[in-house]
Nucleic acid binder design. Structure first.
Lengths: 196, 196
DNA sequence: CCCGGCTTCCTAGGGCTTCTAGGTTTCATG
DNA sequence: CATGAAACCTAGAAGCCCTAGGAAGCCGGG
């Protein structure tokens, strides 16, 4: 009997493709084994557990996502950079729904710190915001706002949450415009009447 | 042998509590049956399938969520209403993580249309935005922006996505401020020559 | 009282899943 | 070509969802 020639990377890549095709939830060791024409148990030499497989798909997707964002943002600044970032983000989420869903799972913080992709994400996001002249802690607040909106929009869209007939792309463009307005007029110390 | 006295409502309520306690993903028919001291098969007289159980939990949570939001928003307008809406939203998500996670699942659009809670959600959200004087399609765009940001923030927070030492509540308040700025200066006439 | 009939809950089992233990086959390398 | 390290296998435990059909409690009317 010939071997399937499995490696950890090939298994993870196949899992990512399967996630995009049938949903991240339905990525199972059994289905993956069937895809390779192999018994379930064989996969456990390459991947410790289903949990680890999912984390690996998440890290793969996170890396791909930030690579595409970095390429889109390169050489732009201000509103253009924001629009490029947003466009690349949503395009990836739409093109790779299963991979994108993978990025939402909880992953051990130590693994995140090890991953260069995640560090790059912070780097690029903060760099994009430089044009708006924010200082800490507003910078972190702005990053959290952007991440939240981008992620929330893609998640709701993927879940079919936008029922209204209004074009989803047009709403997205308007949302990005609105975020630009918010960043350009960032609320600094709004009437600090609190405290003593 | 005495009966457990199960009803559909009691089963759904227990499922919601279990979701809050151990995560929505780990709500299983078996675990629920163990909780009631009953065999798995017994639950299927009250609930057609795990899928239906999840949908029922989602509808329950959606109703509770909008009730709390409605109470918080009542009698307020403009920025105050926005802050009250946001505060109630996030408070519910933090207090009931499992129930909140349930609201994210895909649910058949016909069921959503039947649910009065969902219609109320739209009503209250659009009502809250009245003070900003937006007209369609900007109104729909603004609603989508708010929903996305609120949901994205709560989802990322629940997933442990905010690693920076910056206080999460403070970032949330700032994000709500920023959304108010965006709504108050809503970008009309997207001619793109602005800020050139 | 007691006797149908409805509902609740049960036993039994099929099929799918993850994952382990331990044996066998294949391959690269000396 | 031998040999050691992998890749891959069989076998099986345990948990999950769900169905089919039977028994046990609970209600009404006679």
């Amino acid at each position: 009997m010939p071997r399937a020639g499995l490696t950890t990377d090939r298994v993870v890549a196949a899992a990512a493709d399967l996630a995009d095709a049938t949903g991240f939830e339905s990525v199972t060791v059994s289905a993956l084994a069937r895809h390779f024409g192999v018994k379930d148990a064989s996969l456990y030499t390459h991947v410790r557990s289903l949990q680890e497989l999912r984390v690996r798909v998440a890290l793969l997707a996170g890396g791909e996502l930030i690579d595409e964002i970095a390429a889109a943002v390169a050489g732009r600044a201000g509103k253009e950079a924001l629009a490029a970032f947003a466009g690349a983000y949503r395009a990836y989420a739409l093109r790779h729904p299963g991979r994108y869903a993978a990025t939402q799972i909880r992953v051990d913080q130590s693994l995140v710190a090890d991953s260069p992709a995640l560090r790059r994400t912070a780097e690029i996001t903060y760099g994009m915001l430089r044009a708006y002249g924010l200082a800490e802690p507003d910078l972190t607040d702005a990053v959290r706002l952007l991440r939240s909106t981008f992620h929330g929009y893609c998640a709701l869209e993927a879940a079919g949450g936008f029922g209204a007939p209004r074009d989803v792309q047009a709403s997205w463009d308007k949302a990005v415009d609105a975020l630009h307005v918010a960043l350009a007029n960032w609320p600094r110390e709004p009437d600090g009447s609190r405290g003593h």
